[in-house]
Design a protein around this nucleic acid. Structure first.
Ligand SMILES: Nc1ccn([C@H]2C[C@H](O)[C@@H](COP(=O)(O)OP(=O)(O)OP(=O)(O)O)O2)c(=O)n1
Ligand SMILES: [Mg+2]
Ligand SMILES: [Mg+2]
Length: 764
DNA sequence: ATCCTCCCCTAC
DNA sequence: TAAGGTAGGGGAGGAT
């Protein structure tokens, strides 16, 4: 059976549900608490270091943005040595120096502006400033270490700031860019010899230099050109984005995350806005080159391939994201292509989030072009209202949405749409109706009837598979769904999903708008361009090492270590037909293998474990079509004592003491949770509620550690789980079945024409 | 019952 | 620049 993960249906708004809650703790408080603990810890560390080697960093407070080399921990040590400090979260009144190696261009341009108008008071330097200063034991001039983009443009900005009040930026240059259309990156829609059943491997040959077979820098090159990597990494970048927004607004990162969304409880009607950019990637291109406006246009790679985003003119012809260009051009012969501009998308994302945070007290990031805002208790500020008398008769949520959309259009040149409703579901459904370039309020009274008329596939969470199952039951629209009993739905899709469906088709949803979530896992994978020869086992291992290095960087950036490593192996199926996509993975069996490890974020360790797992799969190199490495059971290091995180020690002291925080145990959150372990079985002196709030695997670990400590009853040992032996089933099981992707039979009878049809949308 | 592990599904 | 990533919710089914 052909393996496809992408569906051709029109793309839907997503709904990300947050099950997990800390019972009252909010992220803002969490961050504040972490900051406080960190400061205490720094002081302790400083003492422990036994004397610094100077005071040349006196008054210096560093914040590290993203991944750096040397790493954050190393930089922290160095800064301490010089008598300075390092903060974990950006705060404009505390931080004096931002340290970064990769600083996106948009931030640089933005910073220049902000610095000139005296709004930013931080130096933005490379790690070298710290390294070299320390080695010379004196504070070297920052101006020589400004991050590359700033170096040329605004030398020693901070010194200039006084005389520059309103000085225009040096003529043209980077700023001029925004007004100049780019040199045509547009390609005529006449793909070379598309449409023919050309042997994909003919093309593949030409492309081999980009594959693992011939490109030693494959992993990085691939990721930097992959749109799915770009949108998939959004969450990982979000903390850094928040810091940039905070810098822009002159507040701290935790200020932005402090307020949690309202709940349904008090009976007050909630007001939720869902806002999403119209054909985001396309719009960014059109904003840059207005001559592209109004034509059928898609974003994808130069030679076709998969479409990332389609203009609304293209959609009228049935063109959709996820289609191959060669299919799309059959529907729309005059279709034009623009190529990717990831830096620009990143800049626009930054701009729209600045606006969200300015006009809404609660923001939940959904993606690179989309967010939920809880504006139940909000309205526009007086000055805006005064300047816009035409808004005075509009309900607050609607005028907030309108103002945000206008601001987005002004500042980015891109259209957006917004939906407003009493819950996230209705807001999201309203957005769909509002597009393009409109907004729509879906009132509670209309909600049930409105939802009843929708195809079930429009409900967030109902995708290709669930939609097919429902159709087999004869369920097409939500009113069909409304007639099914709860238990019937649960029998079909399971208990929780059944209940969600049952409620969703009635327009009900009580999930909160959540400012921030704690990551539970992280990883990297590539399943394109993976090709090795039979005798290239060693090269294959290099590939694993490259992926492991990426994963390691992500761990460091997240300030976490992991305790479980999982690999995912794409193994070309026997007699697999050629991949549909050039150099794609084609039909594959997928094998997952995982091991527990000591806590680690180290690239070598991750590579070694992954290679062991891969070897256990015994795949001939020439049949490998993709590989992923994931890390689970994360422990966050923010608050861990630097010696190496002994959680038992943390538990032993009161709840205010030091410990690691894990995904389900934000440090210092005290969570009464259902009894898991009889308190009498806990070692005396342990804080029971803290213990219970730990995830299972940490509880186990802690108990194990305690037992060992008792046995040897000697000094504390380095933490980490000890030999609980090869725990994974997959390791023990001689043969575990490969996962078959989409082994489910494709739902029959879905009418392609229906799927492709575009519903006419009204705009507000 | 509840937990644990390995998937499947979904969204962007 | 032909680049099918990333992460979470949660179900199935065996272990405890
Ligand atoms: N299959 C997909 C879906 C999305 N994207 C990228 C390109 C989109 O521009 C961006 C945002 O996704 P949306 O679902 O919001 O789609 P658009 O913004 O393009 O269109 P719409 O107006 O429907 O929101 O993510 C992608 O690369 N591939
Ligand atoms: Mg969009
Ligand atoms: Mg979107």
């Amino acid at each position: 059976m052909w393996m496809r993960k992408r569906k051709k249906d029109d793309e839907e708004e997503q709904e990300k549900e947050e099950k997990w809650d800390w019972d009252g703790g909010d992220f803002g408080v969490y961050m504040k608490e972490k900051e406080r603990k960190l400061r205490e810890q720094h002081e302790a560390d400083l003492e422990a270091e036994g004397g610094e080697s100077g005071f040349f960093f006196k008054g210096v407070v560093v914040w590290v943005d993203g991944f750096t080399n040397p790493g954050r921990d190393e930089l922290r040590r160095m800064v301490y040595k010089g008598g300075g400090k390092l903060e974990t979260y950006f705060h404009p009144r505390i931080v004096t120096h931002v340290v970064a190696t990769h600083f996106p261009k948009f931030k640089i341009v933005h910073l220049q502006k902000a610095m000139m108008s005296n709004q930013v008071h931080q130096y933005v330097v490379t790690p070298d400033w710290i390294v070299k200063s320390l080695s010379q034991k004196r504070r070297l001039p920052e101006s020589e270490f400004l991050v590359p983009g700033l170096r040329d443009e605004t030398q020693s900005v901070l010194n200039l700031a006084q005389r520059s009040g309103s000085t225009e930026l040096s003529a043209g240059r980077s700023m001029g860019k925004t007004s100049n259309p780019e040199p045509a990156s547009v390609v005529a829609g006449v793909g070379t010899d598309v449409g023919e059943d050309t042997d994909p491997d003919k093309f593949a040959e030409k492309l081999l230099h980009k594959s693992t077979r011939e490109n030693p820098n494959f992993v990085r090159d691939y990721f930097s050109a992959s749109r799915l990597h770009f949108i998939g990494s959004f969450r990982a970048r979000y903390e850094s984005l928040i810091a940039a927004v905070a810098m822009h607004r002159g507040c701290s990162a935790s200020d932005l995350l402090r307020t949690k969304g309202t709940t349904k409880e008090n009976g007050v009607m909630r007001s939720i806005i869902h806002i999403d950019m119209d054909c985001f990637f396309v719009s960014v291109a059109v904003a840059k080159d207005p001559s592209l406006a109004g034509i059928p246009l898609v974003v994808c790679h130069q030679h076709g391939g998969e479409i990332s985003s389609a203009s609304y003119e293209a959609r009228e012809k049935g063109v959709r994201a996820g289609m191959f260009f060669r299919e799309a051009v059959k529907l729309c012969p005059e279709l034009k292509i623009v190529t990717y501009r990831f830096e620009d998308y990143e800049r626009v994302t930054f701009q729209i989030y600045c606006i969200f945070y300015e006009l809404s007290p609660v923001v939940e990031a959904v993606s690179v072009d989309e967010a939920f805002l809880d504006v139940t208790d909000a309205d526009l500020p007086q000055d805006i209202l005064a300047a816009m008398p035409e808004l005075s008769n509009m309900p607050p949520a609607e005028r907030i949405a309108l103002t945000i959309r206008r601001r987005i259009a002004e500042e980015t040149g891109c259209p957006s749409s917004a939906g407003i409703g009493a819950n996230k579901l209705l807001a999201r459904l309203a957005t769909k109706r509002a597009k393009p370039n409109g907004q729509f309020y879906l009132s509670d009274e209309e909600a049930v009837q409105y939802v009843a008329d929708l195809p079930v596939r429009d409900l967030p969470g109902v995708g290709w598979s669930t939609g097919g199952k429902l159709q087999e039951l004869g369920v097409e629209r939500c009113d069909d769904l409304q007639r099914r009993s709860l238990s019937q739905l649960q029998a079909l899709v399971g208990e929780k999903n059944g209940e969600s469906l049952y409620r969703a088709c009635r327009g009900q949803d009580d999930k909160q708008v959540q400012p921030m979530k704690v990551r539970k896992s992280l990883g990297a994978e590539a399943s394109w361009g993976v090709r090795f020869y039979e005798d290239e086992g060693l090269k294959m291992h290099d590939f694993v090492r490259d992926l492991a290095a990426v994963v390691s960087e992500k761990l460091q950036e997240a300030r976490a270590v992991g305790q479980r490593i999982t690999i995912k192996v794409y193994w070309k199926m026997k007699n697999a037909s050629l991949p549909h996509k050039t150099l794609g993975h084609g039909p594959c069996d997928i094998y997952n293998r995982s091991v527990k490890t000591e806590r680690t974020s180290d690239a070598k360790t991750i590579a070694e474990k992954s290679i062991e797992l891969l070897n256990a799969v015994k795949i001939p190199p020439q049949e490998l079509r993709g590989l992923g490495i994931q890390v689970h059971d994360l422990v966050f290091l923010d608050i861990v004592d630097s010696s190496g995180s002994n959680i038992a020690r943390f538990l032993k002291q009161s709840s205010t003491s030091v410990g690691g925080s894990t995904a389900s145990n934000p440090a210092s959150a005290k969570i009464p949770s259902p009894k898991l372990v009889d308190s009498s079985s806990l070692p005396s002196g342990w804080d029971e509620s803290v213990f219970r709030s730990l995830p299972k695997h940490v509880q186990q670990e802690v108990l194990e550690e305690h037992r060992q400590n008792q046995r040897q009853d000697q000094r504390a040992r380095s933490a980490g789980r000890t030999s609980t032996k090869s725990e994974t089933r997959s390791e023990n099981a001689p043969e575990s079945k490969p996962q078959k992707k989409n082994s489910r039979r494709k739902p029959t009878g879905i009418n392609a024409a229906v799927r492709a049809s575009v519903r006419a949308k009204g705009c507000a």
